[in-house]
Simulated scan of single mutants.
Amino acid sequence: MPKTFVTRLQIIDQLIQKRNTGNAAVLAQRLNVCERTAKEFIAVMKSLGAPIYYSRKATSYCYSTNGRFVLQFETW
């Protein structure tokens, strides 16, 4: 997985927490990718369990519960 992929997931997570992603087109511009790729990032995050929805009122992707997206190895 390229570093830019993980970095972009982290950026999206931060923007979602701030409710500041904008719509898919705006998010794509912020990530320097096409709109389809921005939507694919959101889909990947959803498939990994992130409770993401799009809020028309906030004009942003949001989490339906408080939390953050963490992609790392943990030991126990």
Rank of each mutant, 00 (worst) to 15 (best):
M1G: 10
M1N: 06
M1V: 05
M1Q: 04
M1S: 09
P2N: 13
K3N: 12
T4C: 03
F5G: 06
F5L: 15
T7S: 11
R8N: 13
R8M: 02
R8S: 09
R8P: 00
Q10K: 14
Q10H: 08
Q10G: 05
I11T: 08
I11F: 10
I12D: 04
I12Y: 01
D13T: 08
D13F: 04
Q14K: 10
Q14R: 15
Q14E: 14
I16M: 03
I16N: 03
Q17Y: 06
K18P: 07
R19K: 15
R19Q: 12
R19L: 02
N20G: 07
N20P: 06
G22C: 12
G22D: 05
G22L: 06
G22R: 05
N23S: 13
A24M: 01
A24S: 15
V26M: 07
A28H: 02
A28G: 09
A28P: 04
A28F: 04
Q29H: 12
Q29I: 03
Q29S: 14
Q29W: 01
R30D: 03
N32M: 07
N32G: 11
V33I: 10
C34W: 01
E35Y: 02
E35I: 08
E35H: 11
E35A: 11
R36V: 08
R36T: 09
T37H: 09
T37Q: 12
T37Y: 00
A38N: 06
K39I: 03
E40R: 11
E40L: 10
E40A: 08
F41E: 05
F41A: 04
F41Y: 14
I42N: 03
V44F: 01
L48D: 04
L48W: 02
L48T: 01
G49I: 02
A50N: 01
P51W: 04
P51Q: 03
P51I: 01
I52L: 05
I52N: 01
Y53I: 09
Y54V: 10
Y54D: 06
Y54H: 09
K57M: 09
A58T: 05
T59E: 13
Y61N: 11
C62A: 10
Y63P: 04
S64V: 08
S64A: 15
S64R: 13
T65H: 15
T65K: 14
T65R: 15
T65L: 14
T65E: 13
G67P: 09
R68P: 07
F69Q: 05
F69Y: 15
V70Y: 08
V70C: 12
V70D: 11
F73D: 15
F73Q: 15
F73L: 12
E74L: 07
W76F: 14
W76D: 12
